[in-house]
């Protein structure tokens, strides 16, 4: 039962943090994606950087099992799917994880998002053979690849550079961008704060 306990602990922590950083709030998603207020973008970039540095440094120190990495395949459909997800994310203010969390925190519109999501996933299940036949799901650049070659990992690297060192450098890069990114790019001068909920 240990995996179930871990699922409950890590899942609950993830849901709580998504709520606290404002990611489950469509107001903050909309302001971020319309480039009016990048507070949440800074949070996300810092999170990716922090996670990356800890994971790759942990691997180098032998504290993190490289086998826990799980890299998804690269194919043309990843970009097309990203375009679709981005449009729906911007319009609704929810992505799959934040949508279920928002519904749980009492947002009624998020229930409609989930219902639409279940139907959208079902529509993909029904149309999957068409995508498969189109070749747009075929691997690009080796499919399940990382940018560098991570020692001990089952995934190939597209560059010769040592993957864990590159991971730490990129992680530090994400953190640096989080710091230098301004909170606002457009719509300046207006009062940023709104009543919290």
């Amino acid at each position: 039962m240990t995996p179930i306990i871990l699922a409950i602990v890590i899942g609950a922590a993830f849901g709580a943090v998504l709520d606290r950083v404002g990611a489950t709030n469509p107001d903050w998603i909309g302001r971020m994606l319309s480039l009016k207020h990048l507070h949440l973008m800074k949070t996300i970039l810092l999170a990716i950087g922090t996670g990356s540095v800890l994971m790759f440094a942990g691997q180098m120190l032998g504290l993190v099992d490289v086998g826990h990495m799980d890299v998804k395949a690269a194919y043309a459909g990843v970009f097309i799917g990203g375009l679709l997800l981005g449009a729906g994310w911007a319009a609704s203010g929810y992505c799959p994880g934040t949508g279920v969390c928002a519904a749980a925190s009492g947002r009624k519109d998020a229930l409609f998002f989930i219902a639409g999501g279940l139907l959208g996933a079902a529509a993909y299940m029904a149309t999957y053979p068409m995508w498969k036949a189109s070749g747009l799901l075929d691997d690009l650049a080796g499919g399940k690849v990382t940018l560098g070659s991570v020692p001990g990992s089952k995934f190939d690297g597209i560059w010769a550079m040592q993957g864990d060192i590159l991971g730490i450098l990129l992680g530090l890069g994400f953190i640096a961008v989080a710091f230098v990114l301004p909170e606002r790019l457009s719509g300046g001068g207006q009062v940023a704060d709104m009543p919290a909920e």
Partner: peptide
């Protein structure tokens, strides 16, 4: 929200992951 959910999940499954996973 409903239409957005439809497009988001259709796209996420086509891409093989979403904001969290990818």
């Amino acid at each position: 929200a409903f239409l957005g959910g439809f497009v988001v999940l259709y796209g996420a499954r086509l891409a093989g992951g979403c904001t969290s996973g990818h």
